[in-house]
């Protein structure tokens, strides 16, 4: 197991290096950074000086190495647009995105597992069939459309919930949270549903398929033959076996929630990193874009690692450190 984990960590580092290379290449090849940083009235001397300052005259590998060194320390340079350190801007924006992702992740996970189990064990019921049909629509509608429909119904027509922004936030010094005020919580509802709905239907369908599969297994039949109660068969014997494959996909989905947040944040003008990224793209703010890319990939890789460890926690067959008896 230890060897496996070491291998996984090693793989993760490689992935991050590759992403880092892409981010670095953006600096090098998308526009000329010197061009970007110096104004119209520049002299050849200015350019030379800046090139040297930025290390652009050195060879590629050295530059890449320096970029990585800086990145690891969280230093991505100054935003072209705001003239402030990118890291500061990201840290400022991150709480909004993480809170949104957390809430919609929970909605997706809890709703998806509950509905998945329900539709699997009541697979012939009317309610289950309605939910399955509904979920098809949920999967096929684009996120922004769902967001707009929700805004139309709950903000414009009913006027119950705000249509944009984060509401009132509380500043805890190192973190700004919308969880502590009523307006903050109200503002969270629509974006969280919008962002979580797609993942929820995915998880639901996955749980349902897996659960139906597991319910056909011999050990479920054997449990039935021993007179084990339905409830225990569903929630003790079947659910646990269902969760093993569900965890991987769900873990990856949580990563993509953060990535998908770009769209939701744009629709709801949610002041998170996704909106920051979209604005950065509009202004070709390369440092911000590169930093965002790196941050998202670190999250993905980190989530992947955690998912792998959860595997071990759930499935005893993978814990090979115990002695198998024969």
């Amino acid at each position: 197991m230890l060897a496996y984990m070491i291998r996984r960590v090693f793989q993760s580092v490689i992935v991050l290096l590759v992403v880092g290379l892409v981010a670095f290449s953006m600096f090098r090849f998308v526009g000329d950074p010197v061009d970007n940083m110096l104004g119209q009235e520049r002299t050849q001397a200015d350019i030379e000086r800046l090139r040297e300052q930025l290390g652009l005259d050195e060879n590629f590998v050295v530059q890449y190495w320096r970029f990585l060194e800086q990145a690891v320390q969280g230093n991505f340079g100054l935003s072209y647009r705001q003239g402030r350190p990118v890291a500061d801007i990201l840290v400022e924006r991150l709480p909004a995105t993480l809170e949104l992702a957390l809430v919609s992740g929970l909605i997706a996970l809890i709703g998806g597992i509950a509905l998945g189990i329900f539709t699997a064990i009541r697979k012939r019921g009317i309610a289950a069939n309605l939910i399955m049909t509904g979920s098809l629509i949920g999967v096929s509608l684009p996120t922004f459309l769902i967001g707009i429909v929700l805004i139309y119904v709950f903000s414009v027509e009913l006027g119950w919930l705000p249509s944009f922004g984060r509401g009132e936030v509380t500043d805890l010094g190192w973190w700004t949270t919308g969880f502590l005020t009523v307006s903050g919580l109200k503002a969270l509802i629509l974006p969280a549903i919008t962002l979580g709905l797609y993942q929820m239907t995915l998880i639901m369908r996955l749980v349902r398929t897996e659960m139906l599969e597991v319910l056909r297994m011999d050990y479920i039949r054997f449990a039935r033959a021993r007179g084990i109660r339905q409830r225990s068969i569903h929630f003790r014997h079947a659910l646990k076996n269902t969760l093993v494959p569900v965890i991987t996909i769900t873990g990856l989905q949580l990563g993509s929630i953060i990535a998908f947040a770009i769209i939701t944040e744009t629709v709801f003008q949610w002041p998170g990193v996704g909106l920051l990224f979209i604005n950065a793209v509009q202004f070709v703010d390369i440092p911000v874009m590169a930093a965002y890319l790196m941050m998202i990939s670190v999250m993905f890789v980190g989530i992947n690692l955690i998912v792998d460890m959860l595997y071990f926690a759930i499935d005893p067959r993978l814990r090979v450190d115990r002695k198998g008896g024969h």
């Binding site: 297994m217 050990y219 054997f222 039935r224 007179g227 003790r236 076996n241």
Partner: peptide
């Protein structure tokens, strides 16, 4: 019927590899 199963009649299947739940001791 459930109360009878296990209590008054039991069943043994062909394949012991798949008859036991792998995630429960």
């Amino acid at each position: 019927l459930r109360r009878l199963r296990g209590k008054r009649m039991g069943m043994i299947f062909q394949d012991p590899l798949t008859s036991l739940n792998p995630l429960l001791t």
